[in-house]
Each structure stands twice: as structure tokens, then as C-alpha cells.
């Protein structure tokens, strides 16, 4: 019984939240890695693109709510998501045409693209703040829980409860659908294959008649859609605050590098590696150990490896370990 209680405790406070968080990071990292694979730079504006898109979703959600539209138990934000995605795609394409295309035509160094993306980051940041300000915004509605703590206790007869929030379930489902779509697109469609070909060998892709501008456009469309989906899921799961999205940049980059930057499958795996490490390292195991260990051995302290304030340190440490041991990442992404 104690073992089951410990397991439920661990599931409830580590596995379930980390899975949802991992799904969000995976989607973010997938976008970053696609941009890297095709445009060959680390997009510092990705976090703020997520924030911008999520802001659109929040606004549309509020609008729908005031009109009385709802999805019943599901959050209204799911209805607003396509509109947010469309808006962000427009923003990304306008940005590409007005900023990045120029450096592409000049074949500038990747670091110049990075600096340009810093400028873009400032602009996106300002746009988001103009419209919605800097405060926390909640936009979750519908049923909050799929599995409630009390119901679970009653059903299982255990002391510990298990809760699964609707937003967590939706996050995982949407993530699976989105990733499946992206992989299908990359592996099976002509355009997706052209993207991979361009990423693999730009010159040969040109010889084969693949239009770089078209590939770049598709890449931005995918990256923008992924950013908005990731941002909206994160906002539903936690809350929407623009600055938090900027801070997500670090775990997202860490996830992309861990998986092998430029490698889509790696980005997804990396997202979960980072999320599980972060949550497991910052979780206080006192409760779990109290169930598992004999009375005399029970810990007095929290048995927490790192305080939750240091969660970004986890991404960083993972990053450092990968850079030291295997700079190409798990799936051997591009190194140059």
C-alpha cells in the first residue's frame, strides 16, 4: 500500500506535470529546430513569437467568451487557436520578408541572423506589451479536471490523490497530433521532403529546382504554428505572462541542442529530457521517501536536489553536459 501511495504521489507531482511541460517544450523546440535546419540560425525571438501568438489566442478567447461561445468541458482557447496561428503566421512572414530575407540574399553569417532576431525580439515584445500589458492573464475555462483528487481517492482507497487537469490532457493530445502531423508532413509530402532536402544540401536543392523562398515560407508557417500551439498550451496549463515566455527560450534551446539541433525527432525527445530533469531535480522527495523507507530512515529535510527557483539551472546544466560530452546531441544534429 505504501509503495502504491508513493507511486501515486510521484505520478501526481512529477510525472504528470513533467509530461505536460515536456510536451510544451517539445513543440517549442521543434519550431526552433526547424528554423535552425532551414535558415541556420538560433531564433532568439521564438519565445516572444510564442507570447505574441498566445496573446492573440487570449484575446480571441475573451471575445468568444463574451459572445457566450464555449466548447463545453473543453477550453474555448482551442477554438481561438486557429485564429492565433493565422495571425502569427502573418507576423512571421512579414518579419521574414522585411528582416531575414535581406540577410539571406547576402548570405550573411549565422550570428548576424541571431542579432537580427534580437531586434525582432524587441519589436515582438513591444507589440505584445502594447496590446495586453505585462501582467498575468488567465484564459482557461471549461472543466478544470479530468480526474479529481477526491474521486481518485474514493476509487482507489489510497491516502494520496491523483489529479489530471483538462489542460494537461489536452496538452498531451494536441502535442501528439501536432508532432504526428509535422512528421507526416516532413516524411511523406513533396513539400516536406523539399524542406528536408534544402536543409540537407542547399546547393543541390537549388539544382533540383526547389525554390528556397518557398521552403523558407513553409518553415516559418510551421514554426509560427508550433510556437502558438506551444504557447497556448503552456498558458492554459500555467498562465500567460509575456516575460515567462522569454524565459522559456532557455529550456527550449536546451531541448533542441540536447536532441541535436536541426533534428526534429531530437527536439521532441529533448523537450521531454529537459522537462523530466527539471521537475525531478526540483521536486522534494520527502513525501515519497516517507512512504518507502522504514520509520527510522525517514528524512527530516525536504530531500530536494535544487530549489524550484533554480529550475533554469537544470536546463543549463543539461546544456553544459551535452556540450561537453556530445555537442551534436542525442540524434546527431548539424554541428556547423
Amino acid at each position: 500500500m505504501d509503495v502504491l501511495n508513493a507511486l501515486v504521489l510521484f505520478l501526481n507531482f512529477v510525472m504528470i506535470p513533467a509530461t505536460a511541460y515536456g510536451a510544451q517544450l517539445a513543440l517549442g523546440a521543434l519550431g526552433v529546430t526547424l528554423i535552425y535546419a532551414v535558415l541556420r540560425f538560433s531564433n532568439f525571438a521564438h519565445g516572444d513569437m510564442m507570447a505574441f501568438g498566445t496573446m492573440l489566442v487570449v484575446l480571441v478567447t475573451w471575445g468568444l467568451q463574451s459572445l457566450g461561445v464555449s466548447l463545453g468541458p473543453l477550453p474555448t482557447a482551442l477554438l481561438a487557436l486557429p485564429i492565433g496561428i493565422l495571425g502569427t503566421i502573418v507576423l512571421a512572414l512579414v518579419t521574414d520578408a522585411s528582416v531575414y530575407r535581406f540577410y539571406r540574399s547576402k548570405r550573411s553569417e549565422p550570428v548576424i541572423f541571431v542579432i537580427a532576431s534580437v531586434g525582432v525580439m524587441f519589436v515582438y515584445n513591444a507589440l505584445t506589451r502594447f496590446v495586453i500589458g505585462t501582467d498575468d492573464q488567465r484564459f482557461e475555462d471549461g472543466a478544470r479536471f479530468v480526474v479529481k483528487v477526491g474521486d481518485f481517492r474514493k476509487w482507489s482507497g489510497l491516502d494520496e490523490g491523483l489529479a489530471i487537469r483538462t489542460s494537461q490532457l489536452i496538452t498531451v493530445v494536441v502535442m501528439i497530433l501536432t508532432v504526428a502531423f509535422v512528421f507526416w508532413f516532413l516524411q511523406k509530402t513533396r513539400t516536406g521532403k523539399a524542406m528536408r532536402a534544402y536543409s540537407d544540401n542547399e546547393d543541390l536543392a537549388l539544382l533540383s529546382g526547389i525554390s528556397p523562398e518557398r521552403v523558407v515560407r513553409i518553415t516559418w508557417i510551421l514554426a509560427a504554428a508550433l510556437a502558438v500551439i506551444a504557447g497556448t498550451l503552456y498558458g492554459l496549463d500555467k498562465s500567460f505572462r509575456p516575460f515567462t515566455y522569454f524565459q522559456l527560450l532557455l529550456p527550449i534551446f536546451a531541448a533542441a541542442i540536447v536532441g541535436g539541433i536541426g533534428h526534429p525527432l531530437g527536439a521532441v525527445a529533448g523537450g521531454f529530457v529537459v522537462a523530466y530533469s527539471e521537475v525531478m531535480v526540483t521536486y522534494a522527495y520527502k513525501g515519497v521517501l516517507t512512504y518507502l523507507l522504514p520509520e527510522a530512515w525517514r528524512p527530516e529535510g525536504l530531500v530536494q536536489m535544487l530549489g524550484t527557483d533554480y529550475k533554469f539551472a537544470v536546463s543549463f546544466i543539461i546544456l553544459v553536459v551535452v556540450l561537453l560530452i556530445r555537442p551534436t546531441g542525442i540524434f546527431r544534429g548539424r554541428t556547423i
Partner: peptide, 14 residues
């Protein structure tokens, strides 16, 4: 002169 990460068939398709 080939797309190293793509299969032979995909190379031909490209």
C-alpha cells in the same frame, strides 16, 4: 552531390 540524410528513393524523388 546527394542528400545524405535522405533515402535513395527520396533522392531520386527530389
Amino acid at each position: 552531390n546527394v542528400f545524405v540524410s535522405m533515402s535513395v528513393e527520396e533522392n531520386l524523388e527530389m
